[in-house]
Amino acid sequence: MSEIADKVKKIVVEHLGVEESKVTPEASFIDDLGADSLDTVELVMAFEEAFNVEIPEDAAEKIATVKDAIDYIEKQKAA
């Protein structure tokens, strides 16, 4: 797993208070990890802070799973 993926996973575990084993790439923040809409706003902010990236509202809305987040951040960091 990439360094970015590791860090994303860690942030998700910390913010949503879920078991690390549940944070699979396919896991949906809302459907599988118990997040509500405010949790996802906070998660995106935490990603922005941790990776020093900007995630605009329309992009944030499309980040539904752990993999979505990792992919988006990897793309931003590669750009």
């Binding site: 405010l38 706003v41 906070e42 902010m45 922005e48 802070e49």
Partner: peptide, 10 residues
């Protein structure tokens, strides 16, 4: 300001 927690008000 954009870093303000969504949980601030509640």
């Amino acid at each position: 300001a954009k870093r303000l927690s969504p949980f601030f008000i509640p």
